[in-house]
Each structure stands twice: as C-alpha cells, then as structure tokens.
C-alpha cells in the first residue's frame, strides 16, 4: 500500500479522472484483459472449441444456469461442510498440541510429516472406502484444509511471551483465564491466517474429489464438458467455482475484521 503522500494541494478537477479513480485499479486491469481476450478471439478467428470469447462464456453461463446452479450448490456444501469439520478438528487439536507434551512430541511431528503425502494421491483410495457419495469429497476437503489450520493455530497459541504468562500468574489468573484472556486472543490473527489459507485449499479439495469420482458438482461438470469438447461450458463452470472461492475467502476476511477489530488489515494476500 505504497501510496503517494497527500501533498495537500487540491488535484485538478477532471470529471474523467474522477470517474476513473472511482474504480479500483485491479478492476481496470481485469477489464483490459477481458477486452483484449475478446478482441484477440474476434480478430484472429480463434474457433470456439479452442478458446471461446468472454461474451460467449457469459452467454453460456446464462443459458446453462439451470445445470450450473444446482451443481454449484453440491460443490459448495462439500466445501463448507469439509471446511467446518477441519476447523472443528484442527483448532482443538492445536490447543491439545500446545498444552500436552505428549501431543507435541508424539503426534505433532507425525502430522507435519504426513504433509509430504500428496493428498490427491489418496483420493482414489478414499473412493473405494467411502463410495461415490458426499463422504469421500468431504474427507478430501478436510485432509487438505486441516493442515494450515493446525499449523497456524499452534503458532498463534505459542506466540504468548513468557512475560505475559508471568504477568497473568502474578495477577492470580488460573489456567482457564490464561487461555481465554491471553492465549486465544493473542492467537486469533494467526488462526485466521490459517483459515484463509484453508479456504483456498478446501475449494481445490472439493474439485479434485469430484474429478476422481462423482455424478454431480462443478468438478463433474468440468469433466463432462471437457469430454464433449464443450470449452465454453468448461469455462462457465470454472468461473462459477472461482467466484465461489473468492466469495468464501472474502466472507472469511470479513469475519476476521469482525473478530480481530484491533488489527488493521489482514494477513495473506490482502483483501479480495
């Protein structure tokens, strides 16, 4: 956020400039990119089954909405349910790791090591165990998103300085109060950084799971459209899933600002 310091001089009043400044720069970049894409497809006569123009994709989203929407809901519920499970497992696990020597030395290293296993490689296995329903998708979402939640929560819960703990004890705080009034608030920024990372991974998890075996969901739509060389339909599904991911991330950033009002701005990739 390196902006030029305000010199205090009134900028020249130019209505065009004002309209331009009203729109965030990133949106302008996006508009220019999409326009270039449209023009290139138009001018070079690129066939639709290689690269459809943005206008064609938008039309596809509209005409195909009756299939896109229900399938998006399926994927969304997998993402949200898996993510919530990961939070419910990850945060308490982090607390256990910080408070228990056994968990820290006997379990935590295994969790860290398990991260070298590519979760996508386990996906087919999960399919044979849990079938084609929702369960394997949710499990994969959990597997992918749970790790950053645990790691960041552990980091945050350990951020309490020795002085802070000494002080708490000298004020007569019991273990419960140390956790609620010192450790947890101190850990919140770090926990939220983990949650934001996890949102991105949970979307990936759901799509990958659907690629491997599904009969509904956006991942399934992408696969079917690909098999039919329906590139526009593929793009339509990709845009749906991207928008969903962005909204999820934005919602969490919003929640972060509500939960940590004492912090200016959030960590990780700024705000969407």
């Amino acid at each position: 956020m390196a902006s030029v310091p305000d010199t205090g001089f009134a900028a020249a009043e130019n209505p065009f400039k004002r309209a331009f400044n009203a729109v965030p720069p990133a949106i302008w970049t996006l508009i220019v990119l999409i326009a270039t894409w449209e023009l290139l497809v138009e001018l070079r006569n690129i066939p639709e089954f290689i690269l459809p123009a943005p206008s064609v994709i938008v039309m596809e989203i509209i005409t195909y909405w009756h299939r896109l929407w229900p399938n998006a809901l399926v994927t969304l519920s997998e993402i949200l349910f898996g993510f919530l499970c990961a939070v419910c497992i990850g945060v308490p696990l982090a607390v256990a790791i910080v408070y228990s020597r056994f968990m820290e030395r006997g379990v935590y290293p295994l969790i860290v090591m398990s991260q070298t296993i590519p979760k996508v490689a386990i996906a087919p296995l999960l399919l044979t165990w849990f079938g084609y329903g929702m369960t394997p998708k949710i499990v994969i979402v959990i597997l992918l998103s749970f790790f950053p939640i645990v790691i960041n929560s552990v980091m945050g819960l350990k951020a309490t300085t020795p002085e802070m703990l000494y002080l708490a004890r000298s004020m007569g705080a019991n273990g419960w109060e140390v956790f609620w009034k010192f450790r947890l608030p101190k850990a919140l920024p770090s926990i939220f950084a983990g949650l934001k990372l996890a949102t991105v991974l949970s979307v990936i998890g759901a799509i990958v799971a659907e690629f491997i075996g599904a009969d509904k969901g956006l991942g399934y739509l992408i696969l079917i459209a690909g098999a039919n060389f329906d590139i526009a339909r593929q793009f339509a599904s990709i845009i749906m899933i991207s928008v969903m991911g962005m909204l999820f991330f934005a919602a969490l950033s919003r929640l972060e600002r509500v939960a940590i009002p004492w912090r200016e701005g959030g960590g990780l990739a700024g705000e969407s």
């Binding site: 300085t161 002085e163 002080l167 009034k181 010192f182 608030p185 101190k186 919140l188 940590i260 004492w262």
Partner: peptide
C-alpha cells in the same frame, strides 16, 4: 516490555 494486550 510493556506486555500490553494489543486487543484491549
């Protein structure tokens, strides 16, 4: 260090 709680 002042050890103030930054959320308060």
């Amino acid at each position: 260090q002042d050890v103030l709680l930054e959320w308060r």
